[in-house]
């Protein structure tokens, strides 16, 4: 492959990933509403299109037509910059997550990832940390006390949980011996998923992922009774929609990360022993990844409509006094596994 072929293939991959991500995000909003309805014995949106399937497009159309309000007290540049950062972080992170093994297409060997970076996990961690800036900027620049408090809470929460998240990931990296997402997936073939080998790390990472995406048991930045809308109180129209999109895109990314790091990526146990055609094996593996991701996303929503919100001090207690020591414990356990159990 010469350089031009690589560039064209990568651009096509970016286009596909971007389109799929946007579509999935809009349908996540739809499914969020449906699942909330089901959990409350309701039907949910069912008027636009078949069973309400066109609802996300109706929502986006409505948001685009709304007036874009910038408060007088707001710092205009930062106020506009914040949703841009949020979206940028949300969409660029997906670039390093592989959704399947290499495939052969038109004589090319194509990797099912936009960028096969050997420091992929570090890249993801770095970018998701940038996401805090979006929220802090939004909170600070709105010139409203609710936004400011929401932004502060959110940044405090994300920083606290990033530590336990980082240590949980360290366990995975120790076992795989690489920062490359491909190597991490290959290191957990068969049933040797990281969720089985290091259950504590899995739980701490999972809980931290909830906190990082600001979803319900930890959605303090948007605690309606105290903070109105949290950091996006003063946002309207498409800027608000960008935060919304970013939130759901972050959900997909956390889900994909959980699948890649702990649930064995695209691995389907004992698939190789069935003796299927190679193209069928690849198709099943990609479907496996999508199915795992869909289940994690469903779980995110399921939790949202089941568990009440944590109080702020409880959240900090859990983050620093429970999650942090547990993730350290997990790291020690993985070290023992690497030293004595794994040959």
């Amino acid at each position: 492959m010469n350089i031009w072929e690589i560039i064209v293939i990568t651009l096509i991959k970016i286009l596909i990933v971007f389109t799929l991500l946007l579509l999935t995000v809009s349908y996540l909003v739809y499914f969020e509403r449906k699942i909330s309805a089901w959990a409350q014995n309701r039907i949910g949106p069912n008027r636009t299109g078949w069973k309400g399937a066109l609802q996300p497009f109706a929502d986006v159309g409505k948001l685009l037509l709304k007036e874009d309000i910038v408060p007088v007290n707001a710092s205009k540049v930062v106020h506009t910059l914040a949703p841009v950062i949020a979206l940028f972080v949300a969409f660029t992170t997906f670039a390093v997550i592989p959704i399947g093994p290499d495939i052969k297409l038109f004589g090319y060997n194509i990797q099912l990832v936009a960028a096969d970076v050997n420091i992929g996990i570090l890249y993801v961690l770095a970018l998701t940390s940038l996401g805090v800036y979006a929220i802090t900027f939004a909170g600070w620049s709105s010139g409203s006390k609710y936004s400011l408090l929401g932004g502060i809470r959110s940044s405090a929460q994300m920083i606290s949980y990033e530590i336990s998240m980082g240590f949980s990931v360290a366990g995975v990296l120790l076992l795989a011996g690489s920062l490359r997402p491909y190597d991490i997936v290959y290191s957990q073939s068969g049933w040797l998923w990281n969720a089985v080998i290091q259950p504590i790390g899995f739980i701490t990472f999972f809980v931290s992922a909830f906190a990082e995406t600001n979803r319900l048991p930890f959605d303090l930045p948007e605690a309606e009774p105290e903070l109105v809308g949290g950091y996006h109180t003063e946002y309207s129209s498409m800027k608000f929609a960008s935060f919304f999109l970013a939130e759901y895109a972050n959900m997909i990314i956390s889900g994909a990360l959980i699948v890649t790091l702990y649930l064995g990526g695209w691995h389907f146990p004992w698939l190789e022993s069935f003796g299927l055609a190679p193209w069928l094996v690849v198709a099943i593996q990609i479907l496996t990844f999508i199915f795992k991701l869909a289940f994690i996303l469903f779980f995110f929503m399921w939790v949202r409509w089941s568990i009440p919100r944590f109080r702020y001090d409880q959240l900090m207690n859990l983050g620093w006094k429970v999650m942090f020591p547990l993730s350290l414990l997990n790291l020690v356990w993985v070290a023992i596994v690497v030293m004595y159990i794994k040959p």
Partner: peptide
């Protein structure tokens, strides 16, 4: 909540 999700709707 899962039990309620699969229940018939009112």
């Amino acid at each position: 909540t899962f039990k309620n999700m699969v229940k018939p709707k009112y």
